[in-house]
């Protein structure tokens, strides 16, 4: 649905030039919610603006629903943009128009007139749960309500794609969840393809089918969440299930097991202790429901060196689990976040 190929964007020229996007390629499938995660300054905003060409890439192509936008004339581009709704971090609502007036703006631009415009704008406001606030000005609405108006406005022209530029970043956690649920609802009900950018992993966890990680203008990895979870060394997977710093573990082996789908329900650790007589310590665990399925990561400490534990590790891998050895010679990766990591002995 959205295909970004070798897109680069450089601001300025000469020695003052900065590269915001560096050879970025991205594919978003029809009907999915795709999240691009990255820290501020990673180039997320430039990337999402490149999709509707609010920011024209220095090189590369952007294809949306079969139209190669980078080749279109300004007039053709305006028409193509009507298929792409966009919501913004700071809502960008017209202060001088009511909620309904803001939604009607989208319809006016497309050329819908009179009674049809009123009918349709109220219908969309109903859809986003603001049917009773049609006459309110943005100054009278809460942040969440403003973003609902923003979403309604983006939906006015019946787009096929919704771009979300940090739509929940200015909202509190509870409101964030309700807005994300709304995005999920319209994704399902209207079959809308959604591309969102965020710096919050929770957003990806809650609604995304696929994700990409952007850093310094480059895509580090991308794919469906399910496949990323089962990819060894995936940074996205590590950040989805943060386990904190690896504690000192002199002489012992620390492993991390990633569960997804069916394996999450099996008593893996109990079996390990029973079958091999091991004193397994659970150093940390994180479990999430992603795409309606349980998935998670557990960090275990096994007595003895990795060599001594070769057999149990092989057994775990034989069960289809992703097992990574951390510390002691293995490529150690220290996560930046340190939540949900509590040491406990099993």
């Amino acid at each position: 649905m959205i295909s970004i190929k070798h897109v680069s964007k450089t601001f300025g020229s000469g020695t003052g030039a900065t590269t915001a996007l560096d050879d970025v390629s991205l594919d978003v499938a029809r009907g999915e919610i795709f999240g691009v995660i990255g820290q501020s300054g990673a180039g997320k905003s430039t990337l999402i603006r490149a999709v509707n060409l609010l920011e024209r890439p220095t090189s590369g192509t952007v294809t949306v629903d079969g139209d190669e936008l980078t080749l279109l004339s300004p007039d053709q581009l305006r028409v193509a943009r009507r298929k792409i709704g966009m919501v913004f971090q700071h809502f960008n609502l017209l202060a001088g128009r009511t909620a309904q007036g803001n939604v009607e703006l989208g319809l006016e631009i497309v050329g819908v007139t009179g009674a049809e415009r009123r009918r349709r704008s109220l219908e969309i406001l109903d859809l986003v749960g603001l049917g009773d606030k049609a006459g309110a000005y943005p100054a009278e609405l809460s942040g969440g309500q403003k973003q609902r108006v923003g979403i309604a406005r983006a939906l006015a022209g019946n787009p096929k794609i919704l771009l979300s530029d940090e739509a929940t970043s200015a909202l509190d956690p509870e409101t964030t969840r309700s807005i994300l649920d709304l995005v999920k609802t319209i994704n399902v009900q209207l079959g809308l393809t959604v591309l969102l950018i965020t710096h919050e992993m929770d957003v990806v966890k809650r609604v995304c089918d696929s994700a990409a990680m952007l850093e310094h203008g480059r895509i580090l990895e991308q794919g469906s969440i399910v496949s990323l979870i089962s990819t060894p060394g995936s940074r996205l997977a590590h950040e989805l299930f943060p386990l904190g710093e690896v504690p000192p573990h002199a002489g012992n082996t620390v492993i991390e097991i990633t569960f997804s789908g069916g394996s999450a329900d099996r008593p893996v650790i109990a079996q390990l202790a029973r079958n091999y007589g091991l004193d397994v310590s659970i150093l940390g665990a994180a479990v999430e429901t992603i795409g309606g399925k349980q998935a998670g990561r557990t960090r275990l400490e096994l007595p003895g060196s990795p060599v001594a534990n070769a057999a149990p590790i092989a057994d775990l891998r034989g069960q289809g689990l992703l097992v990574e050895i951390v510390g002691d010679g293995a490529a150690s990766w220290t996560p930046s976040s340190s939540s949900s990591a509590e040491g406990a002995h099993a």
Binding site: G85, M86, H90, N92, L94, G157
Partner: peptide
């Protein structure tokens, strides 16, 4: 006028004239 409003109108496919008449002047 906040440049974000112009951006929002552009994202909706507004012409320059529409941006002037529906966003810049009213706002």
């Amino acid at each position: 006028v906040d440049s974000g409003l112009i951006e929002a109108a552009e994202s909706l496919g507004a012409t320059r004239w529409q941006i002037v008449s529906k966003v810049l002047v009213p706002e």
